[in-house]
Design a protein around this nucleic acid. Structure first.
Lengths: 212, 212
DNA sequence: GTTGACCCAGAACAAATAGTCGGGTAGTAT
DNA sequence: ATACTACCCGACTATTTGTTCTGGGTCAAC
């Protein structure tokens, strides 16, 4: 199948993107027809079919305003993919911010959260201030299986959760967690230590007030 | 008006949120009715009215799938506000991630972007590694008028953009920008320096791959 | 008790919306 | 020439979807 896209198809994709940006939901056939400047919605049908065929968008048959832009579509537009922001989760389990101490203890939370692919944690304490994570910040954690030395991780030590920098090098203690604050000392790896995920985003205190 | 929300109302708000997460667009009345587990869509009408009345959501009359979650709604749910990322902010100008150097120079971008309330920047350089901002990370910047000493800010120095920590204290040079890397020295404030906004979120390299 | 807010049942209606049918034009490749 | 693709026109239909109506039940506040 020809994966190339024509100017008109790209026009429509931009129209859909802009509508989502402006209103928060996709346009109807009629709205797309209007923006395209044509008088028949057959054109819209044709163009949408092509776009879907080429995996730029995805639609649900007979459903109003059901066009969703796929990753390939964002790539084509050269825009930041909105979908990841909208859907960093996989399952439908709601993501709840939970409190976590900077001194690696006292998290009264069920483990269900930790099965999520991505979830939020509110940080308490000052053990990571030199890594730009301050008291009150919220971190977005992504579950991982493999870890790279130097990454900020969420660890579980005998049931207690903590956020630290993960280090693995050729000098003792070889594998350990490093608080980013000279006040605290490193935590060597033990058999009770388990790495849960990686911090992929730090939402500064004040983030939540940022919208309006 | 009573701003409190009932359990059922919050249920519905969660249902709407989840639907957007899963599909990319809001649910219909029928879908919401189904998820609520009731047999009449009058319930949906009632609950939506209350939610809109209290500014948790916004709808467009007679338009299918037109429920949009407002910032207050995200706050209630304890979820990251999708709105800023989507750009529902003010104008319809798309938010483009732009490259910005850590050595405060060379940004060929129009100033239009800087009028956005919230936008994304990709960081180049190592001048802020001690603040947890590494080469390749993307920061979310919110336009601000007032700045607090210690905040990470986006500054414009004679047309060149840079991200640094803003410091204002009682010792010379009193007001300056501080790179979070001992390799670099501070930048005293001049009349050519302008503070644009505050970094409210740091998306680590790898964030974009986190979804799917 | 009475009231009112909140929530639900069941049905009918009206508007919005997606999809269809039968064409037409222009360009391009075979 | 012929065939093919991309795009468009105009009118129509079928379905989805939002809205309205009448009524009932529960629970807490007054």
């Amino acid at each position: 199948m020809d994966k190339r896209i024509t100017k008109r198809q790209k026009d429509l994709l931009s129209i859909v993107y802009k509508h989502i940006i402006d209103t928060g939901y996709p346009p109807t056939f009629e709205e797309m027809r209007e923006c395209l400047g044509v008088s028949s919605n057959q054109s819209v049908v044709d163009l949408l079919s092509k776009l879907e065929e080429k995996s730029f968008i995805k639609r649900t048959e007979s459903a109003a305003r059901s066009v969703a832009i796929l990753p390939l579509g964002y790539e084509l537009l050269g825009k930041p993919p909105l979908a990841p922001f909208l859907g960093v989760t996989t399952a439908g389990i709601p993501i709840e911010p939970i409190e976590i101490s900077g001194e690696w203890q006292q998290v009264s939370q069920d483990a269900a959260l930790l099965r999520e692919e991505v979830f939020l944690l509110k940080i308490r304490g000052d053990s990571m201030i030199n890594a730009g994570i301050d008291d009150g910040d919220v971190v977005l954690v992504k579950s991982e299986k493999e870890f790279v030395s130097g990454h900020i991780v969420l660890a579980d030590i005998d049931g207690e959760k903590t956020v630290k920098r993960f280090i693995s090098d050729d000098k003792p203690p070889y594998v350990y967690l490093k608080p980013e604050n000279p006040k605290y000392s490193v935590i060597p790896a033990t058999d009770k230590m388990r790495l849960v995920g990686r911090v992929i985003s730090v939402l500064k205190d004040g983030y939540w007030k940022s919208a309006k």
